[in-house]
Design a protein around this nucleic acid. Structure first.
Length: 662
RNA sequence: AGCGAGGUAGGGUAGUCAGGAUAUCCCGACGGGCUCAUAACCCGUAGAUCGAUGGUUCAAAUCCAUCCCUCGCUACCA
């Protein structure tokens, strides 16, 4: 009784986009685990909340023309509603921007400072003068200093793949507004993460949960542990104590949200949150595989440094694929929980089943409408649903309910075996194994009723037939109790069909082996309807259409041969003069020296360059472009410039006009 | 590049940590049965040199080594 409650959390959904299948891969198994553990007699607290801070939300809010708080509240409501529709039921679903979390975060950061784990250091950071904010790496673009290709701020993703240090990138540009970014020095606060290596190693060895979380983290630690910059120059977020110009990095206040949400739950429920978080605890984090290091390295170190208990288990799920492609919103390989699934009238329970039964929790899960419908039809409808229905139908037809008499001990033994198997898998976070064991029991039921054929037996021995059906009902009851964590809504309907008027969720799993009593039941009806082929095709067509649409957007760039490239005559040139073309607000008429001759070229760059600014400039020209008349002025070539703001291409070192570019 | 995960019949997937005799389950193919049931259910047959090579062992999908292929992750994105 004195042991702390089992506190289960889920990785916090970020409030700048709607809920999709990738989210559910964490939330559904967590919910199933919570339901199972509760019904195994554990005291369980299940909390989550939305993650509201960080630059991406500020940018998204600006684009939407609302405040970050308002944007967060919109998506917060969205996630809250979606989770409820999916029967993922938290005891508390809070917001990291709510006062409880601001308070808890400030308190913890103060504790870190007091305990001597924070120090100041000047950081070199990209700043956009137009957006007037410091730019996280994902919002900086520029030229890779190693290979010269276009690169992101933190990594040369298109070219050599090298990691870039802040300030290393050349010609940085703000990704949001394309304005040239500059680097500014700024004082920031660091957490002495490197001091926690000795603590973390033995901690991780003993950490419960899935092996991927453990292995990944240990691998990281064995490498090198840097100190961690925990502040950002941003308006939106939790203010760093004593510094109104800085907020703490969202990866600090987001996990602290777990504590804040527990506090909020405890206040409401009249419980003590400290039992969950201080000293020995049973905190179990369900997270996606992409945020393992935050939860198994940064987070335990923060907790330890601030004097709190550290997590007991970390359960990390594998990735989700769609049609065997990497999950990608931009490429169209995405399944939106509401638009693509629930709003189509499909039952939450089918998706829950698929997510839990597809494969091991740590492995990659592929979603396709074809496989989805096949598995639902074959396993849920045919094996499970049909066994329930044929059993209840026959019982009702012949006895108007569950007949009397004892249940065969061999049947109880079969159920007991199943219970043991399921329990083992659930406690190892192997949900597929648990579902498989349940389905094996359903298959056993089918084999049992088939080989004993009560419909034949009843013609010669009514008592023997009653015994068979009684045994089948016992299996049906066990199945109902066992499947509740997986398919709560369907299980409740099964429970009702079995003649029970209360909530199946209020009954312990162990009751599966308690003998069913004689009782009347209503005429059953099929609870699990098939996915029809037409419907599946329709759903799949929608997905294919989205993928095709996305492909069009990213549109494949055709490959040119070297010969084709050579057809272009690209040379350096020198602008001799430039003048605006009357009645045009975009065009400039240029006279360009290309070595062999002087060319007249019309270019649409008037908004970006003053004529006298261009005179004398060395530029790059396509000289063999077919001549054209623009605004009545003849143009014999094309000036090369990059981007919407026409950044002119210029030779880095001086060359003679007319030098061929190859 | 480093780290991690994976490569098992036509497709998907279990078993690998704690090595054992006919390698699991689902779909698909073929043949049979049943008719209580949502053309659902049951039984049977065919189909896998368990990525490759070498090693340890009485015994290897499983342990060790090397290699090949696929995918994911890599702190100053969330």
């Amino acid at each position: 009784m004195n042991s702390p409650p089992l506190l289960v959390t889920c990785g916090l959904p970020y409030t700048n986009g709607p809920c999709h299948l990738g989210h559910l891969r964490t939330y559904v198994p967590a919910d199933a685990y919570v339901r199972y553990m509760r019904r195994s007699g554990e005291e369980v607290v299940f909390v989550c909340g939305s993650d509201n801070h960080g630059t991406p939300i500020v940018v998204s809010a600006e684009e939407a023309g609302v405040s970050p708080r308002e944007l967060s509240e919109r998506y917060h409501r969205h996630f809250d509603e979606t989770f409820k529709r999916m029967d993922v039921l938290f005891d508390r679903f809070g917001m990291t921007d709510d006062p409880t979390n601001h308070h808890r975060t400030k308190t913890m950061v103060s504790e870190l400072i007091k305990n001597g784990f924070i120090y100041k250091q000047v950081v070199h950071q990209a700043y956009c003068t137009k957006c007037r904010r410091f730019l996280p790496d994902r919002y900086v673009e520029g030229i890779c200093p190693h290979c010269g290709t276009q690169a992101r701020g933190d990594e040369c993703d298109q070219g050599c793949g090298k990691h870039l240090e802040p300030g290393e990138i050349r010609d940085p540009v703000c990704k949001v507004c394309q304005t040239k970014a500059e680097f500014r020095d700024q004082e920031h606060y660091f957490f002495k993460l490197s001091e926690f290596k000795e603590f973390l190693l033995p901690y991780l060895e003993k950490l419960r949960g899935t092996s991927n979380a453990r292995n990944y983290a240990i691998g990281w630690i064995n490498d090198e542990l840097h100190d961690w910059c925990i502040t950002r120059t941003l308006e939106w977020g939790v203010k760093f104590p004593g510094r109104d110009d800085l907020v703490v990095y969202v990866w600090v206040d987001a996990p602290i949200g777990y504590i804040a949400f527990t506090e909020e739950w405890a206040k409401e429920a009249g419980k003590d949150w400290k039992r969950c978080w201080c000293g020995e605890n049973r905190v179990t984090h369900f997270i996606g595989g992409d945020i393992i290091y935050h939860h198994s390295i940064f987070w335990p170190a923060l907790l330890k440094a601030a004097g709190y208990g550290v997590p007991h288990a970390i359960v990390a799920s594998g990735m989700v694929k769609v049609d065997d492609h990497k999950f990608s919103k931009s490429r169209g390989y995405v399944v939106w929980t509401n638009d693509d699934y629930l709003d189509k009238g499909l039952p939450a329970d089918y998706l829950r089943y698929y997510l839990l039964a597809y494969t091991s929790h740590t492995k990659e899960l592929n979603f396709s409408w074809k496989v989805f419908s096949e598995r639902i039809n074959n396993e849920v409808v045919n094996i499970f649903g049909n066994f329930m229905y044929r059993t209840l139908f026959f019982a009702h037809k012949e006895w108007e309910g569950i007949p009397g008499g004892a249940v065969d001990p061999a049947i109880i033994a079969e159920i007991d075996t199943c219970l043991t198997t399921v329990d083992g898998y659930m406690r190892e976070y192997e949900f597929k194994g648990a579902v498989d064991a349940i389905m094996t029991l359903a298959a056993f039921g089918n084999t049992y009723i088939q080989t004993n054929a009560p419909w034949k037996l009843i013609k010669t021995d009514r008592t023997a037939a009653a015994q068979v059906i009684k045994n089948c009902i016992q299996i049906a009851k066990a199945l109902t109790l066992l499947i509740e964590p997986v398919m709560p809504a369907k299980a409740q309907e099964c429970w009702k069909q079995l003649g029970c008027s209360d909530k199946v969720a209020d009954h312990q799993i162990a009751e599966a082996a308690y003998p069913v009593r004689e009782t009347k039941i209503n005429a059953p009806f099929p609870l699990f309807s098939r996915m029809e082929e037409d419907q599946v095709k329709e759903l799949d067509a929608l997905l294919q259409k989205r993928v095709a649409g996305a492909n069009k957007k990213v549109e494949k760039i055709p490959v040119v041969t070297f010969e084709e490239f050579q057809k272009l005559d690209i040379r350096t040139g020198k602008v001799l003069s430039a003048e605006p073309i009357p009645k045009s607000n975009k065009l400039l008429k240029l006279q360009v020296d290309i070595g062999s001759e002087t060319r007249q070229i019309v270019a649409g760059i008037q908004q970006f360059y003053k004529p006298d600014e261009l005179a004398g400039r060395e530029i790059v020209v396509v000289t063999n472009l077919a001549p054209a008349k623009i605004f009545g002025v003849e143009s014999n070539g094309m000036i090369l410039a990059a981007g919407d703001f026409a950044s002119l291409l210029v030779p880095l070192r001086p060359v003679d006009p007319g030098t061929k570019i190859r």
